[in-house]
Amino acid sequence: MTTVTSAAAATTAERDPAPAVRLTGVGKRFGDGPPVLDGVDLEIAHGELVCLIGASGCGKSTLLSLLAGLEPATTGDVVAEPAALMFQESALLPWLTASRNVELALKLRGVPREERRTRAAELLHLVRLGPPPGALRSPAGRREARRGDSGAADKRAHELSGGMRQRVALARALAQDRDLLLMDEPFAALDAITRDLLHDELERIWRATGRTIVFVTHNVREAVRLGQRVLLLSSRPGRVVHEWVVGDAGTTDPVALTGEITARLREEISRHAH
């Protein structure tokens, strides 16, 4: 287990000439309210999977909005690759099938009509919701696909389970073809079995696609399970107060690390008791 101080993190950062994300002294307040974020310094390299944890109200979601360019920062500099964003709710458009939801992302990106179906099928296959795209080229393959569970592509959100919806949402986010993928507690509403499986799926997809992922969660175990780095945000105002590097399996004891992060998180929360 390695604990990196901010100074050490800064040195690592200097080595990366063009990170996927660089926040320098970023602050955000809404109207005349108290600052939600204050003095956030953060750097994320291409291809990294970074987990942000913090208690409720620490501005995690606000931070993602800044990264996604949905909100401007009040102070400081935000440099981020164009990002795709996934929400806690799948936010699938209820009138479209799973496949059409993915195709819409491609359409809004300007992908020509003929390509959209094939690419949507590829993406749904990637999240294990459809047959391999090649199978759809032959009539026999299409028949086969329709018989199996792979009919998910033609189902609407209300006909899918929560885990399947989130996988469709993931496919849709991947369809945006952006290097940076922001995930706002995407598995928080799922049951534990589904969540464990989706952790495996996300890791596999992350390795397969080489995306940079910023994953926000309030679940320490989830953060340790997924992240290469775990960043702790303080609450009111939100600021990166601590950072852990999760080493390879074997060198890091995830249980001990989870304990340590949980202790820090609790400490951070109890500061607000008075």
Binding site: R128, D149, L160, S161, G162, G163
Partner: peptide, 30 residues
């Protein structure tokens, strides 16, 4: 990057175990 990804993909766990569990869960939850 491509090398790194290819390397990662090569270390992918056998695909079908995950597929089975995922597909089973999907069937149960649909």
């Amino acid at each position: 990057d491509k090398d790194r990804i290819a390397d990662a993909v090569a270390h992918e766990p056998p695909a079908d175990t995950g597929t089975d569990v995922t597909a089973g869960l999907d069937a149960l939850q649909t």
